[in-house]
Structure formats: structure tokens, C-alpha cells
Design a protein around this nucleic acid. Structure first.
Lengths: 107, 107
DNA sequence: AGGATGGGTGGATGATTGTCAAACAATCCC
DNA sequence: GGGATTGTTTGACAATCATCCACCCATCCT
């Protein structure tokens, strides 16, 4: 586990609301958000998320947008990247926002 | 008042979350949203909102994006357009979203 | 070592977007 | 009617963006 690192991401205090909304104002990234709502870590492979039609580099691009907005965090372990939601950080920065967005997205 | 009409806008049930987030994922439109949070009707003139540097046609464009996303409604009366938040409709469509966004934007 | 696996990088491309400017339209006022 | 007010529309332009493709890099496995 000593080789475990995280890809660059903004500090919690630096997460910007408009940047987050811009990141989520895209159908692909909203689909990713909903998939990550289970709190688990996910690989970068979007198969099974209804995004099979997208090229892997396109998914990589969307994951970077989400991470740089502060929505997700990416842990590097060997060949694999584990992406998960920054739920605690987002709740601290914008209380209730994530829950409200996920509830709205579920309807 | 017989000449009062509303510019085209989506029905409440047709308001799409991703479209709303896309509309609000822009600093100018977020500024407009915050200004409209008082629930009052506003003219299309953005002076006094910290948007003095923008051309009037640019503001007109942003107001259209907000309206077509279902965030605002525009009442036409004579020469004037009165823009206001669709708070009731948004609360019905996405409960709690508007309040959470406005609270987040205030921080 | 060599191949397979999981992803990222860089370029290219077409679509969308934010902005301004100039022209236009409708209304109000003198 | 004529001018001033309030916004919209259209066109142009640069910037951003989503997507694909080809290639690269690191890691794992045999």
C-alpha cells in the first residue's frame, strides 16, 4: 500500500460551486455521478454503466473533469485507478448539495 | 394587463436536471440567480448586479439560457421584460435543490 | 523477456458557447 | 411624428468542449 497515491485534486476549501455545476451539467458525467453514489470505489472502465459507446479516452477525460472540480477522488494502485465520490468533502463544503442532487437525479 | 404574456419556457415536468446544472455552471448566470433569489421581478438591465461590463445582448443571451432551462420566467409588459425565479416550479420538480444551491452560492 | 491489461496523452475535428457589434422591433413620451 | 427607452436578433469570432484515434506508459502475469 505504500505505492498508493492520489491524482491531483482541489482542496476541500477550494471546491468552487460553479465549477462543480459545470462538471455535472453534462449527461455523461451525471451518469458517472449516479454510479458513484454508492460510495464504493470504481475502476475507470465504464462498461455496465450504460456508457459502452464511449471511447476509453473520452471516459478518461470526463473523469478528469470530475476530479479537477472536486467531485471525485482517484486513488492509484498499480495499474488500476479507483475512483470514488468525495462525499465527506462535498458535504463539508456545500452541506446537503450532494444528497439533493442525487435525489433530483433519481427522479 | 391584457397585453401581459410570458416568453416560452418548459413545463414544470419537462425541466431537466442536467440542463439546469448546465445553465448554472456559468459565473454570469450564477450571479443572475443569486440576484433573483429575492423572489422579486427584475428588469433585463444588469446594472447594479456587478455585470456592468457585459453587453446588453450578452445578458439577453444568458437570460434566454436560464429561461429555456426552466430556471426563470419572463413576463412581457410593454417595453419591459420582468424576469423572476420559478421557485414554486423548481421546488415541485426538484425539492430542496434551489435552497441548497443558493445556500452553497452564498458561502 | 514478452505479452496482456488498465489507463493516460496528444493531436485532430466538429459542435457548442460567450462575447461584442450593428441592426432591428416594439413601446413610451413629448 | 420623432426621439428615447428596453430588449431581441443576427452575424462574426475566438475559446472551450466532447469525441475519436493512435500511441505511449506502467504494471501484472506467464
Amino acid at each position: 500500500m505504500t505505492d498508493t497515491e492520489r491524482l491531483p485534486q482541489p482542496a476541500t476549501a477550494d471546491i468552487d460551486l460553479v465549477t462543480v455545476l459545470h462538471a455535472l451539467g453534462d449527461p455523461v458525467r451525471m451518469t458517472l455521478l449516479r454510479s458513484y453514489a454508492d460510495g464504493a470505489e470504481h475502476s475507470c472502465d465504464p462498461r455496465g454503466l450504460g456508457l459502452d459507446h464511449l471511447h476509453k479516452s473520452t471516459v478518461s477525460h470526463h473523469l478528469r473533469v470530475l476530479r479537477e472540480a472536486g467531485v471525485t477522488t482517484t486513488r492509484v494502485a498499480g495499474r488500476n485507478r479507483f475512483v470514488s465520490l468525495r462525499r465527506t468533502d462535498l458535504d463539508a463544503r456545500f452541506p446537503g448539495l450532494l444528497d439533493t442532487l442525487l435525489a433530483a437525479a433519481a427522479s
